[in-house]
């Protein structure tokens, strides 16, 4: 029993320590954002790495999610003759929930892991110390651009995922399952509101912050050699994915 309590205590201390560390990193990021020199070139480069390079995987995820939503939805709606609601259901599911969450999870797997691995490698090979030794703040040079690029690019990627998912749903609903296109589109316009889209984009920006903050934190605090980098990368992806899912619930209840 004592061992179990010790184990629980240790885990709690670790989790609180990590959360505290991330809060400190976030606070420093906010301060350094408004402190010159401004790293615009680094920001644009990170926007390309996190955002532009993630477009294919996000489009693919969005398209198939919209398509499968339409198939599953049709199966359910057909049971009580509600097929005309399919377009609105697909659109609401994509914009409010699946667009932001799946985009964030895909970007976590692609770019969040890369952040942790790249920064972790820089840490263990003393490249970060080299930056600091050259009077360049590693936080300002490496972390701030990544966090802002992620916050800015996630809503844009989510917008793309939403759009392609809606198109995917339309193709399946109208072209494959034979729902009247006029009814499909009109019911969608009637039911979906602008807020359904903006709430999803707000979520995406928060998820962008979470995945970049966690990826950067784990990379920045990597210890040991190749093993340490591997662990940091795995932890970053797992913790960021869980944080996105928990954050999704909290944000959904707040934005309802």
């Amino acid at each position: 029993m004592k061992t179990f309590i010790t184990f629980l205590g240790r885990i709690t201390i670790n989790i609180l320590g990590e959360m505290g560390g991330m809060a400190v990193m976030l606070a420093k990021t906010i301060i350094l954002t408004f402190t010159p020199p401004f790293r615009i070139r680094n920001l644009i480069k990170q926007m390309e790495i996190i955002g532009v390079n993630s477009v294919p995987v996000v489009l693919l995820t969005g398209l198939f999610t919209g398509m499968v939503l339409a198939l599953q939805g049709y199966y359910g709606f057909k049971k009580f003759g509600g097929e005309s609601l399919l377009g609105a259901t697909v659109t609401l599911s994509m914009t409010r929930e699946l667009g932001p969450v799946l985009t964030a999870l895909m970007v976590t797997a692609r770019a969040g892991s890369a952040m942790a691995a790249e920064l972790g490698t820089m840490k263990v090979t003393e490249q970060m110390d080299a930056l600091a030794a050259m009077a360049v703040d590693p936080l300002q040079y490496l972390i701030v651009p990544r966090i802002w690029a992620s916050i800015l690019m996630l809503p844009l990627l989510t917008g793309l995922a939403d759009a392609i998912g809606i198109v995917g749903g339309y193709i399946i609903g109208v072209k494959l399952l034979g729902i009247d296109p006029g009814i499909y589109v009109q019911r969608t316009i009637d039911i979906v509101q602008l807020r359904d889209i903006t709430d999803g984009l707000i979520k995406a920006a928060v998820f962008g912050l979470l995945l970049a903050l966690i990826g950067c934190y784990k990379g920045y605090h990597t210890k040991g050699g190749a093993k340490g980098v591997g662990e940091a990368t795995t932890h970053a992806v797992v913790i960021a994915s869980i944080a996105i899912l928990i954050g999704d619930y909290i944000l959904t209840s707040l934005l309802m």
Binding site: T125, E126, Q127, D129, A130, A132, A133, M134, A135, D137
Partner: peptide, 22 residues
């Protein structure tokens, strides 16, 4: 940190494995 960075401009450092930006 700001003043420390100013002092560091007096220094150059060669790291054990060179720590070149790869």
């Amino acid at each position: 940190d700001k003043k420390l960075f100013a002092i560091r401009k007096k220094f150059g450092m060669l790291f054990q494995d060179a720590a070149l930006f790869d």
